[in-house]
Computed example of a mutant assay.
Amino acid sequence: LVLCSALRPAQHASLAVSALGFDRAKEVLQHDSLEGGGEDWPNAYRSCPMSADESRACVVCWHHREWGVPAYQLYTGLLFGLPLAVTSFNRYSRFSEALGRRLLFLLVSLYFDDAHLTDWSSSKGSGQQAFRDLNEIMGSPFAEDKRQDMAPTGTFLGLDFDLSEISGDGTALKARQTEKVVELTGALRQSMEVIRAVLAMRPRRRVEVFPSEHCRFVAASDAAEDVPGEGTGGFLLVWRSGLPSREAFVAEVSPSVYSLFTPGDHKIAQLELSMVLYALTARPSRFRGARGVWYIDNVAALMCLIRGRSDSPDLERMANLIHVALFALQTWIYWEWIPSKSNWSDSISRLGWRDPWHRMHHFKCFPAYFPASLWRLPLRPVTLIFELL
């Protein structure tokens, strides 16, 4: 069973550039560009080929109305819901992927029935069409209505990609190499500040050989902004040791909090991410040395927590503060996405003190305030403050 990453378009682009060599790639990109496209098999399980012997393991049973007894029938395709069908079908998609790579020399990857191709715009979609023809010959044609024509932008596995600007890592330091200005830009100063703060902390990677005796916790946070500028938020903490073992917090989101963010109508991602910062400053002593899992339903905020950075100045600043705080407190958190309808902090984030769910489950409720003073400080002083909290 081989899984595919939603970052495959970027990996394809990186392979294409590496194959050319960086100097040659820069020349080619002056008059050509990379594009991505997508394909999808319709009724994928039912169209997956199967041998006659193996079909005996795929038997459909139902009550025959006319016969009045159970009826059995051999199925000629994979049964949806059969546990081993996932592995069997993945073998077929891997076979199609291998043929596209070896026979057509295409940058193509499949995740079960979803295919992504990366090719040069000068090919004018010929690679995608060749892959479609190949799969039709195999007896598994792609769905016409699910086709994504080759283009600089698109979507693969729910993640949007943009190949219109193939460059380095996109950071301020990398962009500086092609700039002709002599002064330090704000983005470059911020990057330097992060580097200096990290070097000053002298981080070390620790591996726990024996079972950890640190306090464990589970957390969930959420925010809402039905009206621009009038957001709400809250979070729930469950501690394995210490009292109270269940804590609920209602975040005070005042206009002064919004004034710290860059101008804009909607700030839901900022509010979602800020709940973590609210929590770390509300209970620093309990978070110190703790290990836990944190559930969050906003993908943009989740990616900031995982990567530690963002292209948004607000999210970038928030991510820096959170990771500095986690390092100072020696707190390890595994960030996990959760569907909005399953997020158990959704109710308190919207209803606040009137939320019945946290009372029903015996959470003790407290207010939480945004650490505006930390927002304005350099990262090194922020580290020292969290070490003393």
Rank of each mutant, 00 (worst) to 15 (best):
R102P: 04
S312T: 14
G289A: 15
V238D: 02
T383G: 13
M360Y: 12
M201P: 11
R204Y: 08
S5R: 02
R176W: 12
G158I: 00
V293L: 04
S221Y: 03
A368D: 04
R286D: 03
A13H: 02
K180I: 02
D169P: 08
R359E: 09
P141V: 09
I306Q: 11
A19K: 10
H214Q: 08
Y369W: 10
Y295K: 02
R380H: 06
R24C: 08
L34F: 13
N320W: 00
L79H: 13
E387M: 14
Q148H: 14
L280W: 00
I166P: 00
S96P: 04
R101E: 10
E247N: 03
P141M: 12
K180Q: 01
W353R: 10
V209E: 08
S123P: 01
W120Q: 01
A151Y: 02
M318N: 05
M275E: 15
L379R: 12
P211Y: 11
L103S: 08
Y369I: 09
A197K: 00
L15I: 05
H362S: 14
F217M: 02
V2E: 12
L79A: 06
L237D: 00
F22N: 04
G125M: 06
L84T: 14
G68K: 09
S256T: 09
F112R: 02
L377W: 12
S55Y: 14
R376W: 02
L3Y: 11
E54T: 01
P284N: 05
L82F: 08
P141G: 10
T178E: 04
R147Q: 11
L277F: 11
E39M: 15
V209Q: 12
E66A: 15
L99N: 07
F327W: 06
F370I: 06
S256H: 14
S254E: 05
G37T: 05
A115Q: 00
E208V: 14
D160C: 13
L15D: 12
L78F: 09
F261R: 08
S18W: 14
R283C: 07
W357S: 15
I338F: 05
D119C: 02
Q11H: 10
L351G: 11
L302M: 04
A71F: 15
R376Y: 04
A85N: 02
L7T: 15
A224G: 08
T153L: 00
A187D: 06
P263I: 11
S47M: 14
D145F: 12
G231Q: 03
G308V: 01
T76W: 07
R317H: 04
A115I: 10
A220Y: 03
E213R: 12
L78C: 08
S347G: 09
R196T: 07
G170S: 05
R317F: 11
S121Y: 00
P244E: 02
W120Y: 06
L15Q: 15
A368E: 03
R380I: 11
S109C: 07
L74V: 14
F161Q: 05
W294H: 02
R176M: 12
L106M: 13
W41C: 12
